[in-house]
Amino acid sequence: MKLTDYMTKDMIILDLKASSPHLALHQLIDVMESEGRITNKSDYYKALVNREAQSSTAIGFEVAIPHGKTDAVILPSVVFAKAPEGIEWESLDGDPVKLVFMIGVPEAAAGNEHLRILALLSRRLIDDSFRDGLKEAVTVDEIYAQLSTVEA
């Protein structure tokens, strides 16, 4: 299983411009909607915000992994965005977020798929060179190629 099994190249944003996590989430949700992966933007947004209210999904290393489980999601999906200017996200280490992996899973698939995607990501995100490579990539193809190396 590869991370890219949960996304298309159209689900990569090269230059996310958002002044807050909430604005970032709305932009990423728009991508999910345009790809036909959600049925209700508002329900999905609520799931993301409810999860964020439990604790920040900004895990440090300039990375955030917002995620939500809801029946508004049609199939397990990941949207990736680079935010070169950084977004203040109440990160565990205090650094602004520059890499965002937004995960959406249907409620019925919440346990298996949600944990599988998080496990795939967490194993690679501890690698400085992987994160640096994503930050330095300038095209969707370069990012997609790097993300395709994330596999179980």
Rank of each mutant, 00 (worst) to 15 (best):
S20P: 13
D95E: 09
A72W: 00
A109L: 12
E90W: 02
T149D: 00
P106D: 14
L134M: 11
I65E: 15
V97I: 09
A24H: 01
W89Y: 10
Y144W: 13
D5T: 10
G104I: 08
L147T: 02
F130D: 02
Q146D: 04
S55N: 09
L125V: 12
G104Q: 11
I65R: 15
H67N: 06
A72Q: 00
R124H: 12
A119I: 07
I65N: 13
E107D: 09
K82A: 08
L92R: 05
D43W: 01
V73R: 00
E33M: 14
T4C: 01
D71V: 07
S56Y: 10
S19P: 01
A110I: 03
E88L: 09
V78E: 03
L23M: 13
Q54N: 04
S56H: 08
R51L: 00
V63M: 09
P76V: 13
A145I: 04
E136Q: 14
V100D: 01
I87T: 07
I12S: 06
M102E: 09
I59D: 14
E90K: 03
V49C: 12
V78C: 08
F80W: 03
Q146S: 08
L3T: 05
I29A: 14
E136G: 03
P106I: 15
I65P: 11
W89E: 01
I143H: 03
D93R: 11
D43E: 14
A109G: 05
R131D: 09
L115F: 07
K41T: 14
L16K: 05
S129Y: 00
K9R: 12
S55P: 03
T139C: 02
D128A: 04
A108K: 13
T39L: 08
E85V: 03
M102C: 07
A152L: 11
Q146I: 10
M102V: 06
I117Q: 12
Q146R: 13
G60Y: 13
E151S: 15
D93S: 00
R116A: 01
I65V: 15
E90H: 09
L75V: 11
V73H: 02
E88A: 05
E136S: 11
V49P: 01
D95I: 02
D30E: 00
I117C: 06
R116K: 08
D127R: 12
R51V: 00
V100K: 00
Q27N: 09
A24Q: 06
M7R: 01
V150G: 11
L16N: 06
H114I: 15
F80A: 06
P66W: 14
S34H: 04
A58I: 10
T57Y: 09
L120Q: 15
K41E: 10
D71Y: 07
V150T: 06
L125I: 15
L99F: 05
G104F: 11
G68P: 04
V100F: 00
A72M: 04
I74P: 02
T4L: 05
S77T: 15
N112Q: 10
G68F: 12
H114D: 15
I103P: 07
E52H: 06
Q54T: 06
E107Q: 11
K135Y: 14
I143L: 03
I13C: 15
E85W: 01
I65K: 11
R131N: 12
A119L: 03
P21G: 10
S19A: 11
L99Y: 02
M102A: 08
A119V: 03
R123C: 04
V73E: 07
H114R: 13
M1D: 04
T70W: 10
L134C: 05
H67T: 11
A81R: 02
V78I: 15
E33K: 11
A109T: 01
I59V: 14
